[in-house]
Design a protein around this nucleic acid. Structure first.
Ligand code: MN
Ligand code: MN
Ligand code: ZN
Ligand code: ZN
Lengths: 137, 137
DNA sequence: TCTTATATTGTAATTGTTACAACTTGGAGC
DNA sequence: GCTCCAAGTTGTAACAATTACAATATAAGA
C-alpha cells in the first residue's frame, strides 16, 4: 500500500504517524499545485470535517521543519505556499492565471556565494511573468 | 540638491511629487536594509507624525507598480520588504541575526526558461542560511 | 487662481498567523 | 492488549498584515 511511503517519511524523522499528517502528505503529493495553507485546510476539512485549522498549521510546520516538504512565499500573495517536492527547482508565477509552474533548474551556490563566507541551507527562486497558455490568448 | 534625483524618478513615471513619496524614497535610498512596511512607517512617522499607515501602503504600492523600487517576501517573515535597488541581484537571509545581504549575481532567464514559452518580467532569488558574522561566534 | 485627477486619511473589515492551555492520541514498554 | 507519557490536536482569542472604501486634501497643468 502506497501510504507506506508517507509513513516512512514520518518515521525517518521520528514524527508520530497521524491520520492528519498522512492525509496532508498524500494531498500534497497528488496535488503539486503549491497550495496555500487555506487550500490545504479546505481540502482536508472534507476528509476530517472536525479538523482545526491549527492542526493544519502544526502539521505543515512539522513537515517543513523536518524538511519533508518545502515552503515559499510570493510577492503578490500574502500567504505561505507549500510543495511536496523538496528537490531543488525554481517556480514561475503567472500574473494572469495565477498558476505556479515548476521550472527545472538549480543555482550553483558555491559560485554565487564564492568567498562571501556565508553558509547556505536552502533557497527559493521565483520568476514572475505571463505563462505560455495566457500568452496565447 | 540631491532631492532632484527622487523628483525625477517620480516625474518620469508621471507620479505626483509629494513630500511623503520623496521622504520614503530618500529613506529607502539611504537605508539599504530591505525594511518591511512597518519599518518604513516607523521611520516616516518621525518626520510626518500625522501620516497614515495607508499612505505608506499607497506610496510603496505606487513605487513598486512603477518599478521605481523592488519588493520581496521571505519564507520566515509575514510581511513585504522593499528595496531601493532595482538592478538584478539576489538576497541572503541569515537565520541567526535576520540580516538581509545583497548578493551580486543574476539569473540567465533565457537559458532557464528555454523553449518553455513563458514570458518573464521579474524574479526574486532568496538564499537562506547563516551569515559570515554569525558563523564566527 | 481654478480645476481636476491623484494622493492622503481614518476607520473598519478581512485575512493570515501565533499563543496558549486543556484535552486527546500514537506508540513504546510491559 | 493495557498503561503511560511525550507529542499532537483543538478551540478560542489575540495579534499582525493587508485591503476596502468613502471623505477630504493637494499637486500640477491650464
Ligand atoms: Mn514546485
Ligand atoms: Mn537588495
Ligand atoms: Zn497564465
Ligand atoms: Zn547573521
Amino acid at each position: 500500500m502506497e501510504l507506506n511511503i508517507y509513513i516512512e517519511l514520518l518515521k525517518n524523522k521520528n514524527l508520530k504517524v497521524t491520520q492528519h499528517r498522512l492525509e496532508i502528505l498524500r494531498f500534497l503529493d497528488k496535488n503539486r499545485t503549491h497550495p496555500s495553507l487555506e487550500q490545504v485546510y479546505s481540502y482536508i476539512k472534507e476528509k476530517f470535517p472536525s479538523i482545526s485549522k491549527m492542526t493544519v498549521y502544526n502539521v505543515i510546520d512539522s513537515l517543513i521543519e523536518n524538511k519533508i516538504i518545502n515552503s515559499m512565499r510570493f510577492v503578490n500573495s500574502t500567504e505561505l505556499h507549500v510543495d511536496f517536492e523538496i528537490d531543488t527547482h525554481f517556480h514561475f508565477v503567472c500574473s494572469k492565471c495565477g498558476h505556479i509552474y515548476d521550472i527545472d533548474s538549480e543555482l550553483d551556490l558555491e559560485k554565487i556565494l564564492k568567498n562571501g563566507g556565508h553558509k547556505a541551507d536552502d533557497y527559493n527562486v521565483n520568476i514572475y511573468g505571463v505563462c505560455k497558455k495566457c500568452l496565447k490568448k
